[in-house]
Amino acid sequence: MNLQPTLLDIKDMLVSKRASYTVIIMAIFALTFALVVEFSPEDLRDAIEASVPEGSAGMFEFIWFEDVLRFLFLIVVSFGAFIICDLDDDETLDLILSRPESRLSFLVRRTLSSVISFLIIFMIGTLIAGGVAWAIVGGLDLPLFLIHHLMVMPMLLFVFALTFFFSVPLRTTTYTVLVGFAVSLVLSFTYSFELMANPASEPSIFNPLAFGYRVMAGLPLAEAFYVVLVLTIVLFVAGGLWFCRKDL
């Protein structure tokens, strides 16, 4: 496989507006949520601390995973839309698919570029966000915070796969991002409500977007991981087959 186009795509993504917006938004979120924690009255802070699961890297991580991460799905979705929609929007998809490369190889290449560049940008954003929070709030286990973000990647890949799947029929970035983001939000709200209603409960392993909570709370991961993995593969394969057989 020729790695040159993949490397070029990754390079383009790393210097794109999408990348800078990701890092900026993560930093802004971290700053504001760190301020929430810092300025909280003592009794409220105590209440938050009491709710923090034992496996968490600290109070900030609890808030981050519960409130912020779901909004960051938009970022994941925007990277997922990169696979097909970017090319369709600027009308280069036909040109690229007319090269001597199979659609499957094209999809693998674009998915790899998208996932790798997202991973790099997301971890840079996490490092900055964690650094900001650590400087303001203190008491954040920064290495654990970073490790948890790496461990959350299967869940984010599921969002990727979801977006890719929707991008096959929708094609345009606008609608793909909207649908991908809305579905992710609904899935994440679903497990959140369940958890808020009964804090002692464990979120269902069948909701892939509860995987992040399980990582942070130190809950058993194996079964939930298989579910996320299977769903992700199913979505990628179904979307891929659909795309490979579709008239463009």
Partner: peptide, 18 residues
């Protein structure tokens, strides 16, 4: 770009609600 517009709106409103 539509995508940048959506992300920028999303970022700004997330910040404004803080």
């Amino acid at each position: 770009s539509n995508l940048v517009s959506f992300i920028a709106s999303f970022g700004l409103f997330s910040f404004l609600m803080m």
